[in-house]
Design a binder for these strands. Structure first.
Lengths: 214, 214, 214, 214
DNA sequence: TATGAATGAGTGTTCATTCAT
DNA sequence: TATGAATGAACACTCATTCAT
């Protein structure tokens, strides 16, 4: 189903209304969650009529798609912005910086990211966009993990998935519940965990000794 | 709202019907997810009439509560079953064992756990049960982390939250998507990550050097 | 889309409600026409709630289908009941008898027949049922025309189509508008026209002389 | 409700826009049918904005009225153009000629004619225009039938109605469905049926013998 | 204890018409 | 004269819950 705005130019007023709807959509989505979000709520927040909504979006999902596309763009940028994680303080600092960016993105697009992570989406197309987007992030992580701890083959993919799981869910806790943790310190702690668990060079002897006898 | 069965004894047939409903509820919840689960589906699976449902549960949420209580009991047991994580192979093995138990529980009660983690619940009461249950798991984790890396105060709480986030979400990936990772190996990898990130003793000098200059 | 009643037994009350809905559907359809018929009207006439409607029919079209099936059965019977149209009074009488039956059926199922004739149907399936049903009537007509005026090949099919067109539309005029024509006489007139136009044996010489020079 | 153009002169541009709208209206009506025709479709086809539509027509129906007036004029001409139907080949030829004209008109204004015949119109006024227009055609037919078979009083009115029913519906079949009949032949067949059924002189004796004993 | 039946508030979507520029 | 934007009543359909037997 095509968007009603396909093949038609929006003027200033139209663009403003669309912005209002997108913002309202984001807000309602964030407040109520993906499933409980009602078109009714969105138009009330945006202060437009019911009919107006459908001048800009084919249906509720179409609005979600628009938000998801925005989010996917941000996430793609994010994926590209993770630098090499050097051993020692430099790498830790880079991780901390990047996690800060991740959290900022999450504060904006949390609902969408969560909808992807939690597989709440009805539409195949939206799911695919999520899979693709997360794939990019995972690839970046795999690349940096491999640089830091080379030669582990597919294991690093599992690790990247775990890493993504960790930071996504942790950030969710951070932004949703008020955990009472001080933010800067909390990010420090997360960065340290991530560094140790995924990037810190492993002393060969210790590593060998950790292998489980199977 | 009280359950319709409060203050009355169920006979054999009644208990059997209730069991059928609970099992059907679990199945439908797992298949369809929390939001898409319809009373209609549940009674169809349980082969019971609409009216009968309300002889046993005050409403849909009341059924969820019953399932959640079951799940909470399991989780509490799980929380208690995590042993001390010794340095080296022994600790790693314990982690692996416990993660295996966690995954088994998740395979059974994943939907409920996820509903808690994802905060999808409408009712305050159900949310609280979740918070309380996770609190117990977190406490166990804090205790074991503190044993392994003592003297870090509140930081270990943040770490415990991160650890729970990591294993919950990772297990979700494992059970929902077919990631194509071999299971036993995957659990190994997870255990190693967890060990390194949260339990491995940190050499004092390295630790100091990792502190960020602020 | 399956009917909600598929695979479930209706009790007396349920059957009665279904009957009420079918009758109400017929009435509303007749009063308002196919497109203007609202579920709202139907349930008001049937004196049941909105939700009840959907216990018996998957949607509005499903009700139309049920009525159409009824109608198709009647029409099939009708198609079979046209006897041989002998030359002379006997044939004319048979025509008159059959046209009477046709009119009676039309008085009951006019809306459905008209929806078919006027191709107002949204659903492919319903259209096909109409085509099939009319096909049966046409076949009967072809057969009888061929008996009366043999050896004309495909021309008789065109004639059958014309004949069906004539009687359907004429009956529509008869039943819808109050034409002020006396009914018995009117049917006589129609029968005579039909007899002359389609069944009366054609004197060979006159027939030849009527052929157009091409 | 008056047309917005009542009492004001249209300049060249205005007349051109109106023409575009009328043509678009005809096209959409033909493509989509009376009920499914949307103002939206019409303005899209006419490449004109929504607002513009209401500069020329008070509402959707007002456009239909304009088209209907055009159609009524054509039909009136048509009614007048039917010549005397002489006995024998000459009459048959005249019928064939006139039926050809009828079909041509139908190909242009079929939707409107059908909307009249099928009584789909919401407005009283439009219906009346239809009734009046058809009245003129019927009168012409009555006149010619009476000439061909004199002295039958009101019966010829019934016959004229039947004749109109026959040719309208048959032409509808012809133009809508692709019946696979060859056109020229098909018109021949129709003309022959019409001639026999309504115009061929009836031998007095046979006629008497055909009267039903009542 | 169980059932089939009924309810009605709620939700997404359409579309003829009006408005502001 | 024209336009893009906005409106809101209308409509089909869903589903948790209650009712009557």
């Amino acid at each position: 189903m095509p968007s009603p705005t396909d093949g038609r130019e929006l003027r200033a007023q139209g663009r403003w209304t669309m912005t209002k709807l997108l913002d309202a959509g984001m807000q309602v989505l964030t407040d109520r969650g993906y499933h409980a979000a009602r078109v009714d709520d969105i138009v009330r927040v945006a202060k437009v009529s019911h009919g107006t909504f459908y001048l800009y979006f084919a249906n509720k999902e179409d609005l979600f798609r628009a938000l998801a596309v925005r989010c996917a763009e941000n996430m793609t940028d994010l994926a590209g912005s993770l630098g090499r994680v050097e051993p020692g303080d430099a790498g830790l600092a880079e991780l901390r910086r990047w996690l800060g960016e991740f959290i900022a993105t999450y504060e904006k697009y949390g609902v969408v990211i969560r909808a992807w992570m939690e597989d709440q989406l009805s539409s195949r197309e939206l799911s695919k966009l999520g899979t693709k987007t997360f794939g990019q992030v995972t690839s970046s992580l795999v690349k940096r993990i491999d640089e830091a701890r080379p030669g582990r083959g597919r294991e690093s993919e599992v690790e990247a998935a775990a890493l993504l799981a960790l930071i996504e869910r942790f950030t969710y806790f951070l932004t949703s519940r008020n955990l009472g943790f001080d933010d800067a310190d909390t990010v420090d702690t997360l960065a340290t965990i991530v560094y140790r668990g995924f990037f810190a060079p492993v002393d060969q002897q210790r590593r060998a000794s950790l292998r489980l006898a199977e």
